[in-house]
Design a protein around this nucleic acid. Structure first.
Lengths: 342, 342
DNA sequence: CTGTTAGCGCTTTCAT
DNA sequence: ATGAAAGCGCTAACAG
């Protein structure tokens, strides 16, 4: 690795001071055109690029943000990450990707190291509902936005969908299709968003007068394999559910996987509805019915809001809480249940 | 944002010098146990965390690497990113995610900003085959590893699968299933890996004595929508292909999508095979036949090699080129073609 | 074993 | 309009 070329080298070559070099680099208004050109030429000839680390140290800004997700392999997060990194690039920010595997300890570690690296702000897409580190960030007025996550705090900033309502819509849809035995792949209760989906499920059952059957409910961690095995076992039973609501499309795919492994036809013998509306759900070979979240909009908002928090220092004494509306999208995996005469 | 607590504050509180604080932070060997304790206590009481930016500036290391992918939304990249970030975290590195949307200009910009941010190394998963910026990196002995990408250069480091062979295996598989009209969703030729898949396709047709039909070949950019429309139009024709080989599973999904939209049954009326073996391919509801790449191994290797390049400065005068073997995995989307008497 | 001191390469007053 | 100089918060010789 050859020696770096510093702004001093440029300065010497252009016969100006290093601070002048800095000024042209930063587009300061009052520079004589001729000296500006001298500097520009010297920069060009030396192939100089400025050291952002030194710049960060001096300016106390890094133009880097952190993005913490539970699982980048879940298309919902990948699709969100894509728009976030895209918008970030437009605004000249870079993003450090942190994948927690839905593990709170990892989340905490990542928050720690991101702060150490002095990122300008953090978007957290998988925030445990009472996480103390996140509350600390809010208390310190550190720019943080929860994305598809909620955490109750006086200064909390979050963007999410009405998860409670989304879950209700999903289950009502199944009910209208004549389903009464409705299985549920719950999301982890440690996230407030999935917890709300869980409450929505329970509430709507009550409203519809269906008794909850705990055997139909998976409520452990988000794990594809575990959901697969749970569902497979459940589907072998005589009184198996005729339908499933899964708290994420990813988990709905695991249900479909299990159903296929048991040669159960969807939707004739089993209806499945997910949550998120990942791009794949729209694929007509799959055609997953789901509850849609306006993820592009959410992701864009999250990034824009974060940047205004960072750059305008926007007094967010109250914080902001944005809740968008979910929608039902019926595709091929849910259908009317024809009662067996059996 | 309250004022940062610096190592000086800790030093004062512990009545030692700042460099001693630095020493305990860095686990220097010869420190008296008692002063070490004093320092540790002071750190604890003040809630001090060191400033990694300052540290980076002084030490000329950032413990950050860049990961450049064409599209994080493609499960192959997301799955790779997951293992890379995971392993990186174990080794105390963070990763800046760069999503190029398969655009070389973006790639170049990202290389530029990553160097500006002084990352310790870069993994490039979508490297255009003659990219000059990448060659520059090699010439400067900057730690770079191409992942699932190849670029000819005397010092090149890359890890990829035998793409040529993979493509041949795929087409041969189709041939053995009695297919003669074999459509091909080519990857962009600008990537050497996909280019090699393209060559493999051509070569095997030649070997099998099948004449190439350019109408059957899609060879524009990797775009889900375009592939979808191309395939849909092609499938409407009388002499449509009876099978497709797609240069990525993501594109194979687009083919399946189009087939479903035309009510064409897979595999009875159309066989489809992809490349990559994304997790979803294994889902039995989908059951995508594909060519597998040992992606976990590849990703792990990429990260480990990169770190040894960074830390051991490992003299890689020759660079290293690792080519792994692909394998055929037949699932549900490919089947024997029964000739119509029509 | 520990303190002193000089950077790392910028930004940013403060002068002029 | 531009230069000088003081940091930013660390690491890393160099002394002792």
């Amino acid at each position: 690795m050859k020696d770096r070329i510093s702004a001093y080298d440029v300065a010497r070559k252009a016969s100006v001071s290093q601070s002048t070099v800095s000024r042209v680099l930063n587009n300061y208004p009052h520079i004589k055109e001729s000296t500006k050109q001298k500097v520009l030429i010297a920069i060009e000839e030396l192939g100089f690029t400025r050291d952002e680390i030194a710049r960060s140290l001096a300016s106390n800004k890094t133009r880097t943000i952190g993005l913490i997700v539970g699982d980048i392999t879940n298309p919902f997060f990948a699709e969100s990450a894509k728009v976030i990194t895209g918008k970030a690039q437009e605004r000249q920010y870079d993003v450090i990707l942190c994948n927690t595997n839905h593990n709170e300890e990892n989340l905490n570690k990542y928050i720690q190291t991101l702060k150490g690296k002095r990122v300008d702000g953090i978007i957290i897409a998988s925030a445990d509902k009472n996480n103390e580190r996140i509350k600390e960030l809010y208390n310190q007025n550190f720019p943080v936005i929860l994305f598809n996550s909620i955490l109750e705090h006086e200064k909390a900033n979050y963007i999410a969908v009405n998860n409670y309502k989304g879950a209700k819509i999903a289950v009502e849809h199944l009910y209208q299709l004549n389903h009464r035995r409705i299985g549920y792949i719950a999301g982890p209760s440690k996230y407030l968003t999935t917890h709300l989906r869980n409450l929505g499920y329970e509430e709507v059952l009550k409203e519809l007068g269906i008794e909850r059957n705990d055997e139909y409910i998976y409520n452990k961690e988000f794990s594809y394999d575990e959901v697969y095995h749970f569902t497979k076992a459940l589907l072998k039973k005589r009184d198996r559910p005729t339908s499933f609501f899964a708290a994420s499309d990813q988990m709905a795919l695991a249900v479909l996987d299990a159903a296929a492994s048991e040669n159960i036809k969807v939707p004739e013998q089993l209806s499945v509805i997910g949550f998120d509306d990942i791009d794949l759900a729209r694929n007509q070979y799959i055609g997953l019915s789901t509850i849609t979240q306006p993820k592009e909009k959410m992701a864009t908002l999250a990034l824009e809001k974060l940047i205004s928090l960072i750059e305008d220092g926007e007094e967010n004494d109250a914080g902001f809480q944005i809740i968008l509306e979910p929608d039902l999208i019926q595709r091929k995996t849910t259908g009317f249940l024809v009662e067996k005469s059996t």
